[in-house]
């Protein structure tokens, strides 16, 4: 998902300050992390004089607004994503986008979706190294790998009786994280 919103330049430093605080105080990112369906997301502020100009022949941009560009890589559908954002992160989202022109607030969700629909632009090419894995799949798989690495160190040197106990403990540890990845069912 990509979105671009205009901001009056005097507001830009305030948003930069907010992002600085968000970056410095990790607990403030807890809701974003706990949602656990965003692989990567970023916000980029482009100053009105900061659009790259690489040749004298390229016309110079003459803009009155700075722009906030948002990119998100999430699993699930657009509606699920926006609904979750609105329901769980409304306060944080308001602090980010309140500096953008005409932002209606992230609740109620209908005008919020209308605004996102207006400022969004489409992706022309998208690549994902693990296209069938959701964020939770990745986290679960890494936990399984860590548990297996631990168990593998001793599993072959145990007596069968010791192995049985250790194997059961290992299964109990990995059980919540087992499974295989695949195409998610599409729900609306």
């Amino acid at each position: 998902m990509n979105a671009i919103t205009p901001m009056k330049p005097w507001k830009t430093p305030l948003l930069r300050l907010f992002f600085f605080v968000l970056g410095a105080i990790k607990p403030l990112q807890a809701d974003l992390k706990n949602l656990s369906f965003i692989h990567f997301a970023r916000w980029v502020i482009v100053g009105r004089n900061r659009f790259p100009r690489l040749s004298d022949k390229q016309p110079r941009e003459e803009l009155r607004y700075d722009y906030l560009i948002f990119f998100s890589n999430f699993n699930g559908t657009w509606n699920q994503y926006i609904d979750a954002f609105s329901a769980v992160l409304s306060r944080g989202l308001n602090l980010i986008w309140r500096w953008s022109e005409k932002f209606p607030g992230s609740t109620p969700v209908t005008p919020f979706k209308g605004y996102i629909g207006r400022v969004q632009f489409d992706t022309d090419y998208y690549y994902n190294c693990y296209p069938k894995a959701a964020t939770n799949d990745v986290k679960a798989a890494l936990r399984v790998q860590d548990a297996l690495n631990d168990f593998a160190k001793t599993s072959q040197s145990l007596s069968p009786v010791e192995f049985e106990n250790a194997y059961l403990e290992f299964l109990a540890r990995v059980q919540p994280d087992l499974g295989s990845t695949g195409i998610a069912p599409v729900g609306t």
Binding site: F19, H39, F40, R42, W43, L142
Partner: peptide, 10 residues
């Protein structure tokens, strides 16, 4: 462009 805020879950 310098990223203003970057979030990576893992």
């Amino acid at each position: 462009l310098q990223t203003t805020f970057f979030f990576a879950d893992v």
